[in-house]
Simulated scan of single mutants.
Amino acid sequence: MSATPSLKLSLIVAGLLAFSSGFAADKMSREEYNAAKDRIEAQHKADSEACEALKDNAQDVCEKEAKAKEKIARAELAYQRTGEDRDRMEIAEVKAEQEYAVAKERCDDMSGDQKDACQKEAKAAEEKAKADMKAQMKTN
């Protein structure tokens, strides 16, 4: 599906923004925070509206991707606001969970053993991402 590269690109860009914002270590003002929150909500609404043109599972996948982008952006915003390590780690956890949710939804296009294998692969990727995150926490 064409939405897959879009989500991956969005996640990469979001990750880079989160990383770069951490180096600034300046806390956001209330106005900046509210403006960023409004932008996230507007982007989610636009992404969700774009999904309406799709049908069946393609629409479901699109909606999951839109929700995933919103949740990741909100986690990144929380980190930009506080600069705290726990919020930085929350970004990694939210990304893992949302990538799993999107992958699991994509599996719905399949059936039988192929669907089972797809779901197991998606779950394994989520668990690996969370394990990597925990290992990174221990080294920091």
Score class of each variant (00 low, 15 high):
residue 112 G to W: 00
residue 125 A to E: 08
residue 137 M to I: 15
residue 37 K to I: 00
residue 97 E to Y: 09
residue 41 E to Y: 08
residue 39 R to H: 06
residue 1 M to Y: 14
residue 128 K to G: 01
residue 50 A to Y: 03
residue 50 A to V: 04
residue 85 D to P: 14
residue 49 E to W: 03
residue 99 E to Y: 10
residue 9 L to K: 12
residue 45 K to T: 10
residue 91 I to Y: 07
residue 12 I to T: 12
residue 99 E to Q: 15
residue 61 V to E: 02
residue 77 L to I: 03
residue 72 I to C: 02
residue 53 A to L: 13
residue 63 E to C: 00
residue 27 K to E: 06
residue 92 A to P: 03
residue 89 M to C: 02
residue 14 A to H: 06
residue 53 A to Q: 15
residue 53 A to K: 14
residue 109 D to W: 05
residue 58 A to H: 13
residue 37 K to Q: 10
residue 64 K to L: 03
residue 99 E to V: 14
residue 94 V to T: 11
residue 113 D to A: 14
residue 107 C to I: 14
residue 106 R to E: 15
residue 110 M to T: 13
residue 83 G to M: 06
residue 137 M to R: 12
residue 98 Q to N: 03
residue 92 A to V: 07
residue 49 E to S: 08
residue 66 A to L: 07
residue 7 L to A: 01
residue 26 D to N: 05
residue 24 A to H: 13
residue 104 K to M: 07
residue 80 Q to I: 03
residue 32 E to D: 11
residue 57 N to W: 11
residue 12 I to L: 13
residue 24 A to I: 10
residue 122 A to T: 04
residue 67 K to R: 11
residue 12 I to M: 05
residue 55 K to G: 02
residue 129 A to Q: 01
residue 102 V to N: 01
residue 108 D to G: 08
residue 28 M to R: 14
residue 136 Q to I: 06
residue 31 E to C: 00
residue 4 T to D: 11
residue 128 K to N: 03
residue 88 R to P: 09
residue 106 R to G: 06
residue 134 K to I: 09
residue 133 M to P: 05
residue 87 D to M: 05
residue 24 A to V: 10
residue 88 R to W: 08
